[in-house]
Simulated scan of single mutants.
Amino acid sequence: MLAIVFAIAFFASTIGAICGIGGGIIIKPVMDAVGAADVATINFLSGCTVLSMTCYSVIKSKVSGDSKIDPKIDTPLAVGAAAGGLAGRQMFSAVASFFGDANIAGAVQAGTLMLVTVGTLLYTLNKEKIATHNVTGAIPCMAIGLVLGISSSFLGIGGGPINLVVLFYFFTMSTKRAAQSSLYIILFSQAASTIAAIVGGVSNLDVALLAGMAACGILGGIAGRAVNKHIDDAAVDKLFCGLMVAIILISGFNVVRYCG
Rank of each mutant, 00 (worst) to 15 (best):
Y123K: 07
L51W: 11
I21E: 06
V256Q: 03
I186P: 08
K176V: 00
V245L: 13
D38M: 01
F92W: 05
A235D: 06
M244P: 00
Q180F: 05
A191K: 07
T136N: 12
V227R: 01
G106R: 04
T14S: 09
T194W: 03
C216L: 06
S153K: 08
D206L: 08
I8M: 06
G88F: 07
T117M: 13
F168N: 08
V255M: 02
V165P: 00
A94H: 13
M1S: 14
F253K: 00
T54R: 09
I25C: 03
L77I: 11
A96Y: 05
V58K: 09
F170N: 09
K72D: 05
I59G: 09
G158A: 08
G212L: 12
S52E: 06
N103W: 03
N254H: 00
M213L: 05
V207I: 14
A83W: 00
G159N: 11
G159E: 13
N228D: 02
P71I: 09
I186K: 10
M173T: 15
A226C: 07
G149S: 04
N204M: 05
I4F: 15
A102I: 13
G35K: 07
D233C: 01
F170L: 12
G23F: 01
A226N: 07
G106E: 12
K176P: 00
P140W: 00
G24A: 02
L146G: 10
I59M: 15
D74F: 03
C48S: 11
A215N: 09
M142L: 15
Q190T: 11
K68M: 14
G242M: 05
L86W: 02
I185K: 09
V39P: 06
A102E: 15
I150G: 07
N254Q: 02
L167A: 05
G260K: 05
G200F: 07
A211W: 14
D70P: 02
S203N: 14
A3N: 08
L51A: 03
R257Q: 10
T124M: 14
I247C: 05
G137H: 04
G84K: 01
G149C: 04
L113I: 09
S46C: 15
I185V: 15
V116K: 02
L122K: 14
G119H: 03
G260H: 06
A33Y: 12
M31G: 13
A234C: 01
Y184S: 10
I247S: 01
G35S: 12
G16A: 03
